[in-house]
Design a protein around this nucleic acid. Sequence first.
DNA 1: CGCTTGTCTTGACGTTCGTCGAATCAGACG
DNA 2: CGTCTGATTCGACGAACGTCAAGACAAGCG
Lengths: 125, 125
Amino acid sequence: MSKQGASLPVVDLTADTPCCPPLAQRRVPAETAAVLAPAFKALGDPVRLQLMSMIASADGGEACVCDLTPAFDLTGPTISHHLKTLREAGLVDAERRGTWVYYRARPAILRQLAGLLAVEPPATA
Amino acid sequence: MSKQGASLPVVDLTADTPCCPPLAQRRVPAETAAVLAPAFKALGDPVRLQLMSMIASADGGEACVCDLTPAFDLTGPTISHHLKTLREAGLVDAERRGTWVYYRARPAILRQLAGLLAVEPPATA
DNA sequence: CGCTTGTCTTGACGTTCGTCGAATCAGACG
DNA sequence: CGTCTGATTCGACGAACGTCAAGACAAGCG
């Protein structure tokens, strides 16, 4: 819960420019790891990974909880809990518009994570 | 040449070709999520993220446990446990050569994960 | 205003995770 | 062959996680 209240972290996950070189290029410092690990952990659950994908690939870039919940064999509160986890990890953003709550992906942090995992192609391909 | 084989896991993380389109392009199926989530979960710990980076960025592509352990304020068994987690997630490979054990990163799965997280550059939006 | 619908929060429970100490296993060297 | 060093496995403990049931909150509508 203190994720959002944390004062300026060493690594800004919301920036559009890469925060750091790929993981395989230079050893990632402890502070960077401490900031990025929670994001990976948030994706480390099949339900959240699917939720993230459903939100990110949704039409218009946002998805309503009413569309997400029935896609799983889980109760509403459980889905809500997972969405909260994604929100606290900075992966998605929530907005209430009228009756329904819409979730939107944050491409910037996805780019950060993808950039960190980037590896040189196998054979100059 | 098709990936539709039934005997093997639905998603082959060791393949050099992308297993699936980016997360934000098409909704990732439950089976794919079940296979990929453990890999993200393995990276969801600061210690393991640093270990992964140290191994992947090591000279010659491999790192000795004797080099990894002293880099943390953790006991040997704990580091060994984390390495086992990375190994079971398919992220690294271990090999014993004489007295020491060397760990090597598996670029293929890193590519898979990076590809899944890939997002179109901001300009496209 | 009160009802209905839809979402979030709270509290609880069982499971898994991260960590350690002690014991065990695998090679190397005298 | 015995012993030493290095890495893993085993057993245990507290903390965090995933899940649900029940209750609380917000918005729309009669």
